[in-house]
Design a protein around this nucleic acid. Sequence first.
DNA 1: TGACAATAGTTTTATGTCAAACTAAAATGA
DNA 2: TCATTTTAGTTTGACATAAAACTATTGTCA
Lengths: 167, 167
Amino acid sequence: MKNSQGKKNPGSDIVHVVANLRGAAHDFILTRLADEGITDLAPSHGAILAVLYERGDQPMMAISEYIRRDKSTLTVLVRKLQSLGYVTRAADACDGRVTIVRLTEKGRELRELFERISGELCREIWCDADDDQKEKLVALLREMTGRLEKANEKHETQEKHEKKEAD
Amino acid sequence: MKNSQGKKNPGSDIVHVVANLRGAAHDFILTRLADEGITDLAPSHGAILAVLYERGDQPMMAISEYIRRDKSTLTVLVRKLQSLGYVTRAADACDGRVTIVRLTEKGRELRELFERISGELCREIWCDADDDQKEKLVALLREMTGRLEKANEKHETQEKHEKKEAD
DNA sequence: TGACAATAGTTTTATGTCAAACTAAAATGA
DNA sequence: TCATTTTAGTTTGACATAAAACTATTGTCA
């Protein structure tokens, strides 16, 4: 009677459900990578490589925002990718503050594997959904995320104002 | 032209989108908690309390599975909740191996706040969706998760067989 | 009953993660 | 031009997280 979603109002566990989907996807990726003998990369490292594959060489900050990790976290992650030989770091010619992360040949060699695993993962996730359904769902999830981010931002600026009022 | 989702096949970034939604939800929760002066709880701690609110006192292992954290992680998280006075731990009378986690009065006092924040969060996420839409989407995400988990399990047992063959 | 396997938790060790303080470079503006 | 502010990134310290090795208890089965 008192089941996990028994009497509760619908959708109240959306965050938990989403977190589980993310977790299961991570597990999927990690086991497939391990199959190929790659045991020293975390999902976050894969996310960094994916950005570089999609968008080319990128500054730290751009990667940081895209994969939603603090810049200090990115320092650690990129340092590891560098020590494993997948990327290099170089100062930007135009702006001395900026560090550009570049794929090495070894890094580029991983692309095919990453795309294969990503393809398998998507096939499992989407099953028999058609393109229209996929686009609709992704758009919906993006809208949800956008609303939350806006709410978080609004909240931040509100706090700043409160701080200024304290003068 | 080469936009973030320009030519790519639809749905290929579902994992990234889902991860962002989860991240934004976590940020939302953390900032609301901070508003109430609670700065020493991580989202995982909240997840543990939520399980206890919903299902009553629980053994470590049950919580661990539900919130998708390793049992060793749970040891740390629960120890912290205990040191902050929100829960107690006691050996199970029937099974000496089992530790039951129980809410304290201080832990129960947080429930109202948690449900308020959770309610605000859901309002932002769902916006004007009706119950039917909510249920459909949650069910769909659950199916996706289920398929991934099954694929991960299948993969595990397959590895065990391969190991046995190595005799 | 007694050896062996399975299960629940903890400890240890290593790494991912963030916030805050810091450095260095660029932008701003008086 | 020079002081102030802003921005990119690193360092440090604290905590979340997981895998592996370990302890202790329970279950199994010959």
